[in-house]
Design a protein around this nucleic acid. Structure first.
Lengths: 338, 338
DNA sequence: CTGAAAGCGCTTACAG
DNA sequence: CTGAAAGCGCTTACAG
């Protein structure tokens, strides 16, 4: 059986196609009785409006896009993005919006995807993550007038709305906590240095350490992978002035760091304290469970989705500061040795 | 500036809209000279065909769908699906197909999404994962005649094509390897029992253990989460006839199991050997690195995508048996104690 | 080889 | 409150 159309419904209800459209979309123009009859028929024959026809006649595509420009080997173990996606979905599903996902290799390729999507009218808006300094995507988005919401900042995004959380404050909280435990040599293993939130965390880290009068505040740049996180940890632990605590920019690197420390015969937390960022279930998978800066990533995603949907509907939107990450102490932190 | 259409191109090239369509789609009906001129203009003005118009006039939606019916807390740390998705994308991108993702709560909800997507003509086909016995999705897919490919089986899928790998053989390989090391008490921590491939692995496990004359072959059912994997491990290690080796159905549970064993004072691999399934970077994140049944999940996904695209194009498709998982010995396996 | 036209299934002014 | 019609931007038979 062919997929039913509004013409089929109109025929059965004895009204025009226009009336069916009005009835189904909750528009005025039909009597309540007619509306109910039409809705009943639509339900009975399992009608779903052809999204292409709808989009073509001026309505929205009812889809938003997400491009991810990290290598697959990072995405597969990095819990952040699936968390974010599940937050998106919660909002999108309730409005019958679809999520279109595309993996890309670079911000340049991302830009091409935006152009194509918008030209094809395939999406009504996009989520932009991993904001960089002087991000090439921002001017293109503005030129296209493609509704968008930037996740992670704050940064220069012109008229494009942002959702961000106070990374600087969270870093400060973690450092102060370690300081209160007695640590004076704290190091940091960071994610990609070109990402804006990495930069923000780094600055805050340096600042707080200076304020507290620490002798050193080393940051080793890594890339969110376990390999790099492990390598950075090894480097730190072999240095002359070995840190007594390390803060990692995500939990994958923290888990790798824990493993390296144990391999090198250090006890965590007795010899080395570890703090992870982004408190996924990964942190409770290992022994000891990791102290982490936790935040509700799904909620973060849900807020971003609401912003994007508002932007698409041309409602006024303001930047949103999401709840900051809170420190969740677990077994991987303790006073320093000696 | 408005998004350009074929009418704009036709005007500038001095031809009809039909000619533009033929030229851009590589159809006969225009001279080579005209074709090149049209293509040059299209490129110059940054033309992208409106996907809605295209879909409406009989062409494909150029999108495929994936529904995921596992809880977000599993998806976020389970590397399998992102691996699969990156495999899909590699194939889809080369044909400019989009991937539409939707998280759902149950197979029943999945069925509803299929009906809606197909009714809306939003996708041309779908990926079906986590096949169950008497899966409710199969008859609906057949009724709708929605092109689909089932990932993981083999099972009863009627006319729907499948991509699967030899789980039974992989289990046998792992058990024989442990047996060769001297283990006689091997246990298994499984994923959701209602999934067909879980069942297949379980049967193979029982069979091989019986063939080898093992005194016991316990399987504890879990659900792929770290919590359950840890709980199952604790249960096994506290039992009177403690196993000397445990095989896990995914790597998240294996990592959790390792952590529980270490917490209980057991040395891995001296006191307990651990084998993980699905060799994500997670396995090399921990210490000792985990022996695993590895397979190329991205390639698995790429094969499934090719199958689906062929099914959509109404080409003949056969079931594909992907390369089986191979045992990759690492530091978590050794001869049993004593 | 090329043009004019119908049609896909909706939405939305425009008349009655 | 309702109907008839135009139009969204493509594709594709059908004539020339």
């Amino acid at each position: 059986m062919k997929r039913p159309t509004i013409a089929d419904i109109a025929l059965r209800a004895g009204v025009s196609k226009g009336a069916v459209s009005y009835a189904l979309n909750g528009q005025p123009g039909v009597s309540e009785a007619t509306r109910e009859r039409i809705i009943a028929i639509a339900r009975e024959i399992g009608f779903n409006p052809n999204s292409a026809a709808r989009a073509l006649s001026g309505a929205k595509a009812a889809a938003v896009g997400l491009t991810l420009s990290r290598p697959a080997r990072i995405l597969s173990v990095e819990p952040f993005f699936m968390g974010l996606i599940s937050g998106f979905e919660a909002e999108l599903a309730s409005r019958s919006y679809a999520l279109t996902l595309q993996l890309v290799d670079s911000p340049e390729q991302e830009v091409e995807v935006y152009r194509r999507w918008w030209g094809e009218r395939r999406v009504d808006g996009v989520f932009v993550s991993d904001l960089r300094d002087g991000d090439v995507r921002i001017p293109v988005l503005q030129e296209l007038q493609l509704p968008a919401v930037v996740i992670g900042g704050p940064g220069e995004t012109g008229s494009i709305t942002q959702v961000w959380s106070d990374d600087a404050g969270a870093v400060a909280e973690a450092v102060r906590y370690l300081s209160a435990l007695g640590h004076r040599r704290i190091a940091r293993v960071s994610g990609m240095a070109e990402l804006l939130h990495t930069r923000a965390r780094g600055q805050a880290f340096d600042e707080v350490c200076r304020t507290l009068g620490f002798e050193s505040a080393v940051t080793v740049a890594a890339d969110y992978t376990g390999e790099e996180g492990g390598r950075a940890t090894r480097q730190l632990l072999m240095s002359a002035s070995r840190p007594t605590a390390v803060i990692y920019d995500n939990d994958v690197m923290a888990v790798a760091g824990l493993s390296v420390a144990q391999e090198m015969g250090l006890r965590v937390p007795a010899d080395l304290s570890i703090v992870a960022w982004d408190d996924s279930p990964l942190c409770r998978l290992v022994h000891p469970p990791l102290t982490a800066l936790s935040r509700d990533i799904a909620d973060y995603g849900a807020q971003a989705a609401r912003q994007l949907l508002d932007a698409i509907a041309e409602k006024p939107v303001d930047d949103i500061e999401a709840a900051p990450a809170r420190l969740t102490p677990r077994g991987s932190t303790a006073p320093p040795p000696g």
